[in-house]
């Protein structure tokens, strides 16, 4: 049966059409970003990518810095394959897929230098800000990495710093007028290989017949993170094709993120 769907998807691709909706092989689905969807967070965003829906939120806590980086704050991204999102997701501890998802999003943000960690130092060697970005999937229709990456970035972009009292303790439920120091916008774009064709932003049915995927996270003109997944493989020509396309797609997504505030 999967083979039949694959044949159908590839035949459509020949005509530059996709499974659902009116888009071509290189086009992403409609992207909607809503921010501040949860008032107790420092910043939050809901991303709707076609029928994929994810929500990300930022919370800040005070912690001690790593000894090799005494003047820098830290970042932890974590996501769950929330069982509300898909009949196949099971409740319980995050599995390997959820952990990979979290780490790919985390690396994109960290490596791009998106957050100015030095500005997140409160008392050198003693107190720094820990930035905790959590995302939840509400509806899985494929390409969760891109949806979560975009949601995480949108939530960070609107995040406010919590208020500190005279003893450098967080005043719960209050915020300063400062935003989380934010420098760059890393954007993940994931490519799915079906047969010998490359599909951008696969939906769930397409993803099910894809042998391999490649996530390219870039900011400005630099590539910050790559992740190849799936049992299939890419040749060098295909990788170059993905890299070239990723920058074009990134600019379109950036247009949407830039409107967010």
């Amino acid at each position: 049966m999967n083979e039949d769907f694959k044949k159908y998807a590839l035949e459509l691709a020949e005509k530059n059409k996709r499974n659902y909706g009116n888009r071509g092989v290189d086009e992403t689905r409609n992207l909607i970003i809503e921010t501040n969807v949860s008032m107790n967070s420092e910043g939050s965003a809901k991303v709707t990518l076609g029928k994929t829906i994810v929500v990300a939120g930022v919370k800040m806590e005070i912690g001690t810095p790593y000894s090799d980086r005494p003047n820098e704050g830290t970042l932890i991204c974590s996501g769950e394959l929330t069982p509300i999102a898909d009949d196949l997701f099971e409740p319980g501890k995050p599995g390997e897929e959820a952990i990979e998802l979290s780490r790919v999003v985390d690396r994109g943000i960290r490596e791009s230098g998106s957050i100015d960690f030095e500005k997140l130092c409160i008392v050198p060697k003693e107190k720094v800000w820990n930035v905790l970005v959590d995302f939840y999937i509400w509806n899985n229709d494929g390409n969760l990495i891109d949806a979560c990456g975009i949601a995480a970035i949108a939530a960070l972009k609107v995040a406010r710093m919590p208020k500190l009292d005279a003893e450098n303790k967080i005043v719960s439920g209050e915020w300063s007028d400062q935003k989380v120091p934010f420098l760059k916008i890393p954007i993940p774009t994931t490519f799915f290989k079906i047969g010998d064709k490359i599909f951008v932003d696969a939906d769930k049915e397409e993803q099910a017949v894809s042998e391999a995927r490649l996530t390219v996270t870039s900011s400005n003109d630099k590539i910050n993170a790559l992740q190849k997944g799936g049992v299939g493989a890419f040749n060098i020509k295909e990788i170059e094709e993905c890299l070239a396309k990723s920058f074009k797609i990134k600019d379109k997504i950036l247009d949407v993120i830039n409107k967010v505030n």
């Binding site: 949860s38 107790n40 967070s41 420092e42 939050s44 929500v55 939120g57 930022v58 919370k59 806590e61 929330t82 905790l132 959590d134 939840y136 719960s172 439920g173």
Partner: peptide, 10 residues
């Protein structure tokens, strides 16, 4: 499930 950022203290 309580979403981590749904409350003032994560």
């Amino acid at each position: 499930d309580l979403v981590s950022f749904s409350v003032p203290d994560r």
